[in-house]
Amino acid sequence: MLAGVLYTVFAPGLAAQDEPLSNDAQQGRAIYEQSCISCHGNNGQGVPGRGPSLIGVGEAAVEFQVSTGRMPLARQGAQAEPKPPVWRGEELERNVRYLSAYIDALGGGPRMPAGTDLGANGDPAVGGELYRINCSSCHGYSGGGGALSAGAFAPGLLDATDRQIWAAMLSGPQNMPVFGDNQLTPQEKADIIAFINTLSEDGDPGGVFNLGRFGPSTEGLAIFLVGIVGIVIATLWIAGKS
C-alpha cells in the first residue's frame, strides 16, 4: 500500500491528469481525442513510428502545426506538408487556442505572445543580418525555401503569418532547430519577422518578372528561352534559309 501511495504521489502523468483543466483545455482535449490521439497517444506521449511525444512542445508547436495545416497529418512521408487547415477562419483560431491550452496543460513548453502584428516593432535591417546568419541557409535569401536532404525541405516564408513564423522559431518543427527566447530574444524575433515582411511586401525594382527570385538558375533559363530564341527568330527573318 505504501508503494501504491508513493506511486500515486510521484508518477507524473497521473498527477497531470488530476489537475483540473481550464475550459479551453477541455475543449482542446475533445479535439485532441478526435484528431490527434491515434498518432500522438493517450497522454501525448507519442506512438513509436507514428507521432512524436508532445510533452513540452508547448503552445508554439500547436500554433505552428495546426494553423499551417500540417497537423492533422494526411499521410506519413519525409516530412509533414503544409495543406489547407481542417478548420477555417475564426473556428481555426478558436481550435488552435483550445488545443494550445490542452497541450500546455499536458506538458508545458514555449508560449506564444499575444497579438498578430508581431513584427511591428522590429528593425528589418537588424532582422536581415540575423536572418542571414540563422535562417537563409535553409529558407533562402529571398525566403523562398529550399530542399533539405532525402526528401525533406524548408518551406517558403512569404505566405506565412507573423504568428506562424514566431511559433516556428519557438518550437523548431521537424528538422528546423529550436530558437528559444534565450537564444533569439523576443526583440530579435520581431526584427527577423519585420525583415521577412519586407521580403514579402516589397516589390521587385528590377523588372516586371522576378524569375521566381531563384537566382542564376532561372536567369540562365530565361536567357535561352527568351533571349536566344527571340534573336534566332529575328535571324530567320533577316537572312535566308538556303
Binding site: 541557409s137 529550399g146 533539405l148 536532404s149 525533406a152 521537424q174 528538422n175 528546423m176 532547430p177 529550436v178
Partner: peptide, 21 residues
C-alpha cells in the same frame, strides 16, 4: 561553404553548395 543546414531530426548537417551531408 558554411554547412549550416542543421536538420534537427535526421541529425545531419547539409552543405547547400554541393550537398555534402
Amino acid at each position: 561553404c558554411p554547412p549550416s543546414l542543421y536538420e534537427q531530426q535526421t541529425n545531419r548537417l547539409l552543405c547547400p553548395c554541393h550537398q555534402s551531408q
